[in-house]
Design a protein around this nucleic acid. Sequence first.
DNA 1: TGTACTGTCTCACTTACTTCA
DNA 2: CCTGAAGTAAGTGAGACAGTA
Length: 264
Amino acid sequence: MAQEEVHDAGLALGLSLGGGGGGGGDRSNSSRPARWEAPSLTLSMPDDTTVTATASGGGCGGHSVSSLSVGVKRERLEEAADLGEMVSSTAAAGAEDDDDGSTRKKLRLTKEQSALLEDRFKEHSTLNPKQKVALAKQLNLRPRQVEVWFQNRRARTKLKQTEVDCEFLKRCCETLTEENRRLQRELQELRALKFAPPPPPPTNSSNSGPPSSSPAPPFYMQLPATTLTICPSCERATAAGKVDPDRPKATHHFFNPFTHSAAC
DNA sequence: TGTACTGTCTCACTTACTTCA
DNA sequence: CCTGAAGTAAGTGAGACAGTA
């Protein structure tokens, strides 16, 4: 097909116009390809021919200015650009240039192109200029298109990852909420226990054994109520609860690993 | 050496087009 | 056929960085 020449023509345009225009080799200024020459644009073709488009107005040189005006330039030059760009679209492969320059034709990459791009993306999520040009050549696309594809692909990857992270955080939140509920219930039970009338004195000394040995009731239920204090780091959350003022906090701090783990 | 300028690259956001249910 | 949603190529503006005068 004659598509390749058209692609390459488009390539030069991409180099000269893209905000990230890309592709121009290394970052040095030594080998800059096609450039904007106000008020007319010269597109360098690979075969040393040029396409010149006249743009009325414009005439800005700097990058910062170009950010603002490139869009306008683009619009004005799209007709010239369409010379190459539009025909490269598979959708428009057989079509003539659109009479209305304002409509944006859209390329659909072939399965083979997408597959190769995916493969390369798996290897590296970014491309250096050389790789970009080589890949573009291989795919019969413009470097700008390869660049855009990688850009969009990175964005999609990031979006997916964000969704995954979001799901994970949601589950964490649910887990913590559930644990919080459980701990609130536990706290209520403990408070109820603390303010309940004191039980009769034990008649059997065996009750004072190590609390953790018996599965029911829970071991902390067997601790004297006065030892059940609030973890300092939790104090804020349970400020309504009254800490026994008679006891020094630090010495008899009741540490429940469960409450301390997540709730803190 | 410090500074302004410029070009390039990448990202986030948006637009426009295509495909499909 | 029409329509809305989803997917995606491409446009746009801004920030970061490097090279240069």
